[in-house]
């Protein structure tokens, strides 16, 4: 499960959502993950609970290990290595 935490509708949030959407065009990604978006302005408790430090943050909760990927996900290589996708 992938959760993308954003803070409101900022350009960064938009870019992150766009980049993640493009990633899920890949079938190998789609077959392994689901994803959701949480706006911490609307759900401050969620940010506290997940110990979010920056936005956007993509959290990979499962499969372990838990991993946090910071930023607008424009750096595809970093994103793929964080998700463990070759």
């Amino acid at each position: 499960m992938l959760t993308l935490y954003v803070a409101g509708r900022t350009p960064l949030s938009g870019r992150a959502i766009g980049n993640l959407g493009r990633l899920f065009e890949r079938s190998d990604v789609r077959s392994r993950f689901d994803w959701e978006v949480v706006d911490i302005l609307e759900h401050p408790d969620a940010a506290e609970k997940a110990r979010i430090l920056v936005t956007p943050t993509l959290v990979k909760a499962t499969p372990p290990p838990r991993c946090l990927i910071f930023g607008d996900l424009s750096e595809t290589e970093s994103l793929l290595s964080g998700l463990g996708i070759p």
Binding site: A7, V54, I69, F70, G71, D72, G82
Partner: peptide
């Protein structure tokens, strides 16, 4: 943790 692009520290301020 991995950095994969530009980000803001908004959550720190909010929390």
């Amino acid at each position: 943790d991995i950095v994969a692009g530009a980000y803001e520290l908004t959550p720190i301020l909010l929390r």
